[in-house]
Nucleic acid binder design. Sequence first.
RNA 1: GGGCGAUUAGCUCAGCGGGAGAGCACUGCAUUCACACUGCAGGGGUCACUGGUUCAAUCCCAGUAUCGCCCACCA
Length: 1033
Amino acid sequence: MLDKHYDAAASEKRIADKWDEAQAFAAGAGAKDGADAFTIVIPPPNVTGSLHMGHALNNTLQDILVRYNRMNGKNVLWQPGTDHAGIATQMVVERQLNADGTKRTDFTRDEFIDKVWKWKAESGNTIYGQLKRLGASLDWSRDRFTMGDPTEENDQMQRAVMEVFVRLYEEGLIYRDKKLVNWDPKFETAISDLEVENIEVNGHMWHFKYPLAGGVTYDYVEKDEDGNETLRETRDYISIATTRPETMLGDGAVAVHPSDERYASIVGKLCEIPVGPKEHRRLIPIITDEYPDPDFGSGAVKITGAHDFNDYEVAKRNAIPLYRLMDTKGAMRADGAPYAEEAGKAKQIVESGVLPDAKTVDAINLVPEEYRGLDRFEARDKVVADITAEGLAIMVPETDACLGPVKAPLAPEEGGEVRSEVPLVEAKKIMQPFGDRSKVVIEPMLTDQWFADAETLAKPAIAAVEQGRTKFVPSNWDKTYFEWMRNIQPWCISRQLWWGHQIPVWYGPELPKRDTPYSRAEIDSALSRIGTLGAGCRQFVAKSEQEAFELASRYYGENIRIYDDGSGGAETGVFGIPSVGYSPSDSGDIASINSIGLFRDPDVLDTWFSSALWPFSTLGWPYETPELETYYPTSVLSTAFDIIFFWVARMMMMGLHFTGKEPFHTVYIHALVRAADGQKMSKSKGNGIDPMDLFDEFGVDAVRFTLAAMAAQGRDLKLDTGRIAGYRNFGTKLWNAARFAEMNDAKFDPAFDPASAKDPVNRWILSSLTAAVDSVSQNIESYRFNDAAAEAYRFVWNQFCDWYLELAKPVLQGDADEAAKSEARATTGYVLSEISKLMHPFMPYITEVLHEHLHGADAGVAALARWPEGKLRDAEATADIEWLVGLVSAVRSARSEMNIAPGKEIDLFVVGADQTITSRLLAQKSVISRMIRAPEIGVADAVPSGAVQIVYGDVTLCLPVAGIVDFDAETKRLDDEIKRNAKEIDRLEKKLGNAKFVANAPAEVVEENREKLANYQAEGIKLSEARDRMAAI
RNA sequence: GGGCGAUUAGCUCAGCGGGAGAGCACUGCAUUCACACUGCAGGGGUCACUGGUUCAAUCCCAGUAUCGCCCACCA
């Protein structure tokens, strides 16, 4: 017996266990022999994360695809797993430590990583529990983690990452380089371009004078478009604008455009950076470069190569030194020698014109003592104040100065008067880079990092989409993909974090092979340099520590012969292969002469590096496993558009490079779930909805159905709880239909053959089912989840419940013969059973309960049942019943409009019925009778007097209500009908009267319109007859 | 600056060349007959605006306005 109410919460638990027991989601479960594979890899959620609405949507859609294909007998694998999420996870654990009053650096790296693993063990299952609740039919036995299990020797997930790194390195597609990168001062790591959010903020632009060296002056001339002089003055400075005054300390040059005549006379001269101790003011050259825009600002740009991406390019082109000013926390550097000494080194570079190597330049700290250790923003304020105090800010009359709200403080003139001029400070909207995780201002920083040659890897990935081997759905996303891939920049893959895949590179001293043996002193000197991982180091790139040692041993064994110089070594003469030791610390000391220490690169890989391998690493790569063979390439990848660059593009690159195959044939880009106010849901805004709360309130099925129903392609969806409630009601409706069937003994009968049904009502619903199944299938296959859901909804509620069950009632509950009753019961049971399968991908829980109810608890789960197959298409029965449905609606409508009490019994006479209609009418007499409360139904030759007349197609339906009919109301009703009819006739006559329409429109369209016109005309005649009869009364 | 998308019923959204649709909300009627998380009947829209293409435009094209997003970016 079905309960009076469906208990979602209880069923969800029970059914989930049942699926588990049946191993319904195991790879290949329920597959037909030799079936094609259908594979989806889940976008791995962050291991410590929890389910948000985006997950709920994406996993619902994937589950619909997966369940649909599984029921169709495909060999299905939905691969689960989680991502170690480098920064995000490290951040969470660090925050916990902070709450406990400690910090990451209080611990060793190993201790900290241990804590992260512990945290993973505690919280890592949260999202799995939530995905299970959602009903996601993932093969849980195949769970994978991007970090694998490092305690396991030769762990496959680790191995995959190492293999990829080493191979790319060997192919020259991964390299180490000193470049300007986005630096996150909070997490103290490099991040990729994609992890930077550019946000418009209110900034300022300051204007300063850079005095020319040696008192040089020049005539500064400005001209208008026609070449007329508008300004001429003698200047001893060049005017520079900046939004970041603190970086002036690291300027290496001032650049002007080669065509800029204003400055032509001073190009090649030196100017002075107007900040720092006066006696050590640095001089920098004025150079030309294409970069400055003569029409912007003064046309002259200060070049700070180590702290600005544009300046970096200019500096590289012109051999301008790159002076790094800040430390890893974004504070002004406090290392190195006193400023006077460091400034001397910079002076030496300018004077000699020789640019030392990058490392040497980087070691120079050009931050004056009074700025050292200051936060970058404090330093900014101080630079502005110092320059202004010295009178080197560009001044404008106060009246002209209202360019911004900020005015730098003024030094009162002697005598206490305030100057009438103020420094020029413009208020300006500037795009400022922020870390997407840390939310702090990102600093362009010159550091050594590992890069992947994305441009090379992107080429095949671009071609795959161009040539349609991988398609985006909706297709317009390929534009986004192409745009990014065709302009791709080197991918910075190293992160200065502790949590992640440590880069598999070990460093030892660079000791090239040579004929003369190395002396012990030489070895010592080489060893002393390697702690910095920079110049003088040799990289050993290997998949494991052991392999690295082997590589190193071979290298040193072949290259080094050492003489004992008598300073303590035990051995004399030539060594054999030196032993190689590994020091995990980057500041350890080197033991002895015959043991070469190796240092492992302390950096870890960008999280997306391992995610990029997900479609094949989860299946066993680099090993040749049966899973890889069967389930790769995968079928569909479903994700949000904001992940196209981060993940989809990189999976395409890596998949093609390492397997030669596109990792998936379709990329389905789902909509973004927005809050009711249209804002992006986010934790920080606090406008997010927890899917779990919705599950509790409405049941999982209702939420899933809503998400599917709203998942129209190409548009974001605003979540409306009203709709969830509506779809919960839909579940209830279905439940009650099943209860009705049960009460009427309508069970699923395995012996029932739909094709053998006789009653047109049964044949009609069975035909409708066929149409609905076709439509739902087609829509799922073309990723039109909303259309699929709407079609299922329409069939179940508006056809099956609203009409079929009502039409079946007289047979099931009346005194029809046993054969008719039995057929109606079997049809009802059959259709319900098919519905429980048709709806299963959308509402897995309630349909599973119904399936169980119809087929028995031991009959196997709906999740593995065969997808419905339409068995009957009967056009005649469909026409008959649709006619009947129309008739009932027309009568009900007229009765309602005439204010006839619903319970009032009125006979029905049909005037003008031909044989078809007469037989339709008689065949369904009892049904119609019940539905419109007409005790007597018959055909008549003439309209009885005092009847309500309804023109329905070719006939006039008459309801004799003599005595109670409201004459005025009936007249009005008919007049309205006539008006409506006349309007249609008019429209169609005009259309058909248009010779061009008849000539140009397709014949079937013309014909269709002619038929419509004829029908309306016939109806019009009947309507006026009816009206005439009214008038005659 | 480049690109993408949106603008349809009070709200949330489908439809996208041949008579405007759904859910919720609203109005009237119905109450122990599967279901009030119900049934029946109904009201409600110059499909943003302006042009163009077409026999025919909510739908295609161009432009305008408003809103949203992505990418890039001038010191």
